[in-house]
Every structure is written in structure tokens, then in C-alpha cells.
Nucleic acid binder design. Structure first.
Lengths: 98, 98
DNA sequence: AATATGATTCCATAATACTGGAAATATGGT
DNA sequence: ACCATATTTCCAGTATTATGGAATCATATT
């Protein structure tokens, strides 16, 4: 994964609201959570929430699946693992940090 | 590590220039790199670079050590490991991502 | 003291992000 | 067709971030 895209993912997670969203989604597991449930959990206005979710989706960290009127958001573990992998690689290249 | 501070660290790394700086520092190992060397590597104006480094220092991801006129920047592996730990914990709580 | 080097702070500008109400879209039920 | 629900897009306004030249600070050398 290249530097710019990695930075974009980190930036997406680098906001308390979005990190909170992502945390909820990770805890929710593979079936994810409806946007409305996230809204109830976090108490963020629908419009604001939608913007944040869109940012997470744009980076690939979250994917969406529609089930009738309800839109489920799911954390993409593979993308997340890639991101962590990048950080670990960079962090463990030379010295005894791991 | 709490959510807000985690988000701050992610935000600090979530910028291509700063991620580039951090990457250099990680690769440089325990003795770190002088600010001037980073500047030569990245070709960023001194002032701009200083702002970015300050942001990394503020979050604790980078620490500085003065050696005469030269200021060395060093990546803090423990803080980085904490950050990765937070992400891994959140990512591996329930489902089979690891 | 004067000068040079390494780096930061001051300051202003431009760019980007965050926020949220109101209107629009998507889907399903009656 | 009409209404209700779930969510997004439009459209601002406000706030924060990024950028970099010029001035300043910190340290060393002569």
C-alpha cells in the first residue's frame, strides 16, 4: 500500500467521530450496523453522520450493503489489516521495537 | 489509550508529509534523524517541516533530542505500538479478521 | 562581539474539513 | 397514488489545517 493512500486511511480514522463509528462497526462484526443504529449510538445528526461514513467508505475502510430501506455499514477487516501491516512494517524495519 | 488521543495520533500520521517524516524516522532507528536531514530528504521548506514535526511531537509519536545545534527527531516505538495495539484490539474483538 | 548554522515562531493566506438544516432520493407499505 | 422511513445530497457557514517567507531564537565558532 502506498504512502498517500495509507495517509488517507489514517486521516479517515483520525477523527473522534469517525474512529467511534469504526469502533462500533468492528465490534458489530461481519453483519455490520445500520446507519440509523450508529446515529442512535453516537447521537450525531443524520447529515453529519452521513458525511463521516462517506469518508470512511471512500477510503475502503467501510463497505455498505443495502437491505431494503436499511443501509448496513461493515468494517473491512482486510483493508484494516493492510493498514496495520503498513504501520507494523514501517515500525519494525530496523530496530528492536517488536 | 482513549479514543480521542488515538484519533489525534492517527490524524497526525494521516498526512502524506507527516507519514513520510515518520517513515524516515522509523527507518532511521533509535538514533533518529536531524531536522535538516529530513528537510533534505523530503524537500519541504524549513518552516513547513517544523510545523509538521511539531504536530508529531505533540501527539508523542516523535521525541526530540538536542545535540549541540542539531535537533534529532526519533520515532517513539512504544507510543506507536500502543497505537497499533488499539487498532488491533478494536479490529479483532469479535470476528475472524486475525 | 560578530558571524554562521540549525531550527523554530510569527504572521498571513489559501485550502480543506466539519457541521447541520432543508430538500431530495430510495425503498416499502397501505 | 400516497405516506412513512432510512439515508443521502445540497448548500451554506464556521472552524481548522496547511503552507511558507521573514524574523527570531539557540548554539557554536573565530
Amino acid at each position: 500500500m502506498e504512502l498517500v493512500k495509507t495517509a488517507q486511511k489514517l486521516e479517515a480514522l483520525g477523527n473522534p467521530t469517525r474512529l467511534g463509528i469504526f469502533k462500533l462497526l468492528v465490534q458489530a462484526g461481519k453483519k455490520g450496523l445500520p446507519v440509523g443504529d450508529i446515529q442512535k449510538s453516537l447521537g450525531v445528526p443524520a447529515s453529519t453522520l452521513s458525511h463521516h461514513i462517506a469518508k470512511l467508505v471512500n477510503t475502503g475502510l467501510v463497505v455498505q450493503r443495502r437491505e431494503s430501506r436499511t443501509l448496513f455499514c461493515v468494517a473491512d477487516y482486510v483493508v484494516m489489516q493492510d493498514l496495520i501491516g503498513y504501520l507494523v512494517d514501517k515500525c519494525c524495519v530496523k530496530d528492536s521495537c517488536c
